[in-house]
Nucleic acid binder design. Structure first.
Length: 435
RNA sequence: GCGGUAGUGGUGAAGUGGUUAACACACUGGUUUGUGGAUCCAGCAUGCGAGGGUUCGAUCCCCUUCUACCGCCCCA
């Protein structure tokens, strides 16, 4: 240990053994549900030009100014590890001309993978974290908003997540938003001195942010603030009403949260977050967030194309599922464990294991030259259903013993006729157990 | 980026300025030599995150650093 040792980079994690089971289940479930909704997977690079992200997120946002994991490559290009998924997907959408006539509209796609943010790790927050996200381009229909929201909810439901809450809000279109922003400033300015220091800064940079301040005094002031609903254009109002109507029809529970804001500039109209009301997980309450956006595709050189999407944090999801005890996943036990006695039987044992695997069974054997007793202990720990014992005797007779680890019963099996006998032998042993 | 707490074996952990760093779990071996989950026995940290310093002597005191965790900012 005095040797130089390596540690994983700050804010990253190694996942193995029991832990990956949850990841596999979540990813599998996402693929399954999303494909049912007509979303196909897209895989984009993990790093892109720094400008791609700074352009999409806005130069003043925290993500760009202090959280970007950026570097200069050997060609002196300013690159960044993707802090979120949307920018890369939009870039790919434009670059590959997925807006073309041969592609379905809306173009519905999903992605999953690691994202990076250079920040201080803490509860449910890492430098490398993972998101599963969805984007749909080319439709402004409110039914699409409803579909996307429904899909997240169904996905999380399918994992057994409890205490879910969909918070819904609208930011209106450009004009609504600009008008509201001004109204908010007009309202807050006279209170500026009473606001918390953080909110005073927010008032300058992004007044909407003041709305979801955690400061108690701020919250009191905010209560008297005008709401976006008074500044919504007819179109935005109609859109929002339609979304709510569809969600009602679909039986999706939601709550209007006028204080909810999304950080990035390109959001408009519907925005939503999926959170948990589980009080034990305040630090990781929001699991998914998303909404409608416009202007992004044009920003990257594509035709004017509206988009809607969401991203969800896998680590947070897992933390939640774990807290709610929904991840009692077990690696499945072995079908066969092969115990061999002595070196002479090793070749036959390996051969037999391979044959069983070819037949579709899971099988494993000892590679440490341990005693039969120890091998049986291992078989037990591995939850092997059957143990086949192979020693000199078996090598000579070409007949092995198959032991049912549940009943303790043993049966003989001819190796030469294993293909035909194996099922019968298993059935016979299992049948005895049922008696 | 700022503030706080912590860092002992595979795991959970006790511990003290000074001979062999508790205990438990796990693991390995054994309990008459080719058969499991119980019991019992035995083994299992030349080292207490790393690097310096104080001291006759430090895992225990000081400094630096790394990492984890908590809070702020922000967010998934």
């Amino acid at each position: 240990m005095a040797k130089a040792t390596f540690q994983k980079p700050k804010g990253t994690a190694d996942l193995y053994g029991q832990n990956v089971l949850a990841w596999q289940k979540i990813e599998q479930q996402a693929r399954l549900i999303f494909s049912r909704y007509g979303y196909g997977e897209i895989r984009t690079p993990i790093f892109e030009s720094f400008d791609l992200f700074s352009r999409s997120a806005g130069d003043t946002s925290d993500v760009v100014t202090k959280e970007m994991y950026d570097f200069f490559d050997k060609g002196d290009r300013h690159m960044a590890l993707r802090p979120e998924g949307t920018a890369g997907v939009v870039r790919a959408f434009v670059e590959n001309k997925l807006f073309g006539p041969e592609h379905e509209k809306p173009y519905k796609t999903f992605y999953m993978g690691p994202m990076f943010r250079y920040e201080r790790p803490q509860a449910g927050r890492f430098r490398q974290f993972h998101q599963i996200g969805v984007e749909a381009f080319g439709s402004t229909e409110p039914s699409l908003d409803a579909e996307v929201i429904t899909m997240v909810v169904k996905f999380l439901d399918s994992l057994g997540l409890k205490d879910l809450k969909v918070a819904l809000n609208t930011l209106g279109d450009q004009e609504s938003r600009a008008a509201y922003r001004q109204a908010l400033i007009d309202y807050l300015k006279p209170h500026e001195a009473e606001l918390s220091k953080d909110s005073q800064v927010r008032l300058e940079k992004n007044p909407l942010r003041v709305l979801d301040s955690k400061d108690k005094n701020d919250q009191v002031i905010v209560q008297g603030a005008p709401t976006i609903f008074d500044y919504l254009s007819e179109e935005s109002k109609a859109h929002f009403e339609a979304v709510k109507g569809f969600l009602n029809d679909l039986g999706i529970q939601y709550e209007i949260d006028p204080a909810m804001v999304r950080g990035l500039d390109y959001y408009n109209n519907t925005i939503f977050e999926v959170m948990t009301t589980d009080p034990d997980l305040k630090g990781a309450a929001t699991i998914a967030g998303g909404g409608r956006y416009s202007g992004l595709v044009e920003e990257f050189g594509g035709p004017e194309t509206p988009g809607i999407g969401f991203g969800l944090g896998v680590e947070r999801l897992i933390a939640l599922l774990t807290a709610q005890n929904q991840l009692n996943l077990k690696a499945s036990g072995l079908d066969f464990y092969l115990a061999h006695i002595g070196d002479a039987s090793q070749a036959l044992t390996l051969e037999l294991a391979t044959k069983l695997r070819d037949l579709g069974f899971s099988a494993d054997l000892d590679f440490a030259g341990r005693s039969v007793k120890a091998q049986f202990k291992t078989a037990n720990r591995r939850q092997a259903r059957f143990v086949i014992t192979i020693g000199d005797e078996e090598v000579a007779t070409k007949q092995v013993k198959v032991k049912d680890m549940v009943t303790g019963k043993q049966a003989a099996m001819d190796l030469s006729k294993m293909d035909e006998q194996i099922e019968d032998v298993m059935a016979e042993l299992v049948a005895e157990e049922a008696e």
